[in-house]
Each structure stands twice: as C-alpha cells, then as structure tokens.
C-alpha cells in the first residue's frame, strides 16, 4: 500500500496493521527516514533554525510509488508492504518516509526494503527545499543515489 500525506505516522501502529490476524509473516523490516539538520551545511548543524519543505507531483507520485512497490512484489515473495511519504513543511528530526516489508523469511524483507528506498530516491517525484536563517535552497540530487538505484536494474 502507498500513502502520500502531510500527517506524521506511527511505526508500531503501521506494523500492527500489516501483521494483524496473520500468521504467515515471519519477518517485518522497517526503514524510517528522518529530516536531517541542513543537508547543505552538514558540518555546521544549527538545531531548530531550519525547515524543510517537500514538494511533490500529485498523481504521478502515487503512480510511481505503486509501480515501485509492484516491482518489489515481483522480485521478492512479500506478504505485505507499505510506503508512506510525507510532504509539506517538516522540521529537523521529523519523520519523512516509512517503508515496511513483510515476508515469511527475513532475506526477502531486508532486500525489498532496501530496493524500495533506493528506487524511491531516484523515481518518486519529490523535491526538498531547505529554509534557514541564510535563505533557502533546493537540495541537489546525489550521484550516490543514482548508483544505489542502478545496482538493482
């Protein structure tokens, strides 16, 4: 399942929803992404002074995330999965993305979670803008992320 929303999420609630009433799931892997303090100035973090705004492409975002999720289900024997991605204004330390994968055995869940994040980073149409005391700047894409996504193709 895919959810794109402004609201925060709760990890344990989401895990319960996925596993409730099921006995075929042997492994649940979760990845939670948090807003880091000023990616553009990683050496000099300034707590509580920066904000991040996430813009996305409504319609395409959901479509892309659903395609990525479907691809994960094709590649691994997953019992269930969930992708939540937030948009709007976030503060350092806020949760921004959640990926959950469930499978009978751990390897599929581990690998699929990594795959989902790697592909999401390069395919889901989100853009981060950082705002701080010195102005605002769009976050630049990283070539590391492209390399991480490419290794699954």
């Amino acid at each position: 399942m895919v959810r794109v929303e402004e609201d925060d999420f709760d990890l344990s609630t989401e895990v319960k929803k996925i596993t409730d009433g099921r006995t075929d799931i042997g492994a649940v892997v979760s990845f939670t992404g948090l807003v880091r303090d000023f990616q553009n100035n990683a050496d000099t973090p300034k707590p509580d002074q920066g904000q991040m705004t996430l813009e996305h492409y409504p319609g395409m975002t959901e479509k892309q995330l659903e395609q990525i999720e479907a691809e994960a289900h094709k590649r691994w024997p997953l019992s269930a999965s969930l992708i939540i991605h937030r948009f709007g204004t976030l503060n350092p330390g806020d949760q921004i993305v959640l990926v959950l994968t469930a499978s009978p055995h751990r390897q599929a869940a581990f690998e699929a979670a990594m795959f989902l994040m790697d592909w999401l980073k390069t395919k889901a149409p989100f853009w981060k803008k950082e705002t701080g005391p010195e102005g605002e700047a769009w976050v630049a894409a990283k070539s590391d992320d492209d390399a991480a996504a490419d290794k699954w193709s």
Binding site: Y57, M60, Q64, P125, F126, A141, D145
Partner: peptide
C-alpha cells in the same frame, strides 16, 4: 503523462508533460 521519459521521447498526443529537476525525496 506521469511517466519518466528521456528528453528525446515524443510528446505527440500527450495530455500532460511535466518538467522538473532531478528528484530528491526519501
């Protein structure tokens, strides 16, 4: 039409074409 494409791809008959910088979500 909400699918990633190359700049060399055809836009003939498309309903919706979006331009944007490389994505930075996650």
């Amino acid at each position: 039409d909400q699918e990633h494409a190359a700049l060399t791809a055809s836009v003939v008959g498309a309903h919706e074409v979006a331009f944007f910088p490389p994505v930075t979500g996650g």
